[in-house]
Amino acid sequence: MWLFYIEQLIHSLPFFLKGLWMTIAISGLSLLAGTGIGFLWGILRASRSRVIKPLVGAWVDLVRGTPFLVQVFIIFFIFPEFGIHLEAFPAAVISLTNLAACFICEIVAAGIESVPPGQKEAATSTGLSGLQQLRYVILPQSLRVVLPPLVGQYVLLIKDSSVVSAIGVVDVTRVGWLTVQRVPQGLLVFGLVAVMYFVICYPLIRLSNSLEKRMSTGYTRN
């Protein structure tokens, strides 16, 4: 009996790989865009702006304080009531991008704030503009603090992407749901789903750990 199911599963492997590809596409696009937006928001959040800083802060808190599933539902089911109709794929990418940006914003802001104020003063005193200070002095130093948790956050976000299967995106999780209706061996089917996530996430976990080790040693490069 098991052999039969495994055989069936092997037949569905192309379907799984398609789902895997969808998961990679959604996560990849969202993480890329989310990293860009998250850095921008993080810089604003760590700035002294009296208007933008609290605005970004409020948005980030709101997004971090509500379930991702609800956010996806709002974008996919509620936005159309206001005339914004999105297909499942763009809705998924937009909601995951926003989630990624919010978490990354907090990581980046904390990284910037970890740079001693004397660094900014030194840069200011030599006449570097605000943007130049950020680019050449502040951001390169904050990256040491930012990179390890950033990669760790990627792992969480890739796993969170499974939520978008709820609006019909055929990602690896959705493929699991569909397959289990034909192959009623939940453990086998979702075991395969889990393995596929693990295959993407494990290298990132290792990367995060090794970054953490590398970054925690001082600034000595010979």
């Binding site: 001693p116 004397g118 660094q119 030194a122 005193s125 050449y136």
Partner: peptide, 15 residues
């Protein structure tokens, strides 16, 4: 600022 060099107690070199 370009005309004024400033030296800090804590050096503040870029590490």
């Amino acid at each position: 600022r370009a005309e004024i060099g400033f030296v800090f107690q804590q050096f503040n070199l870029y590490p």
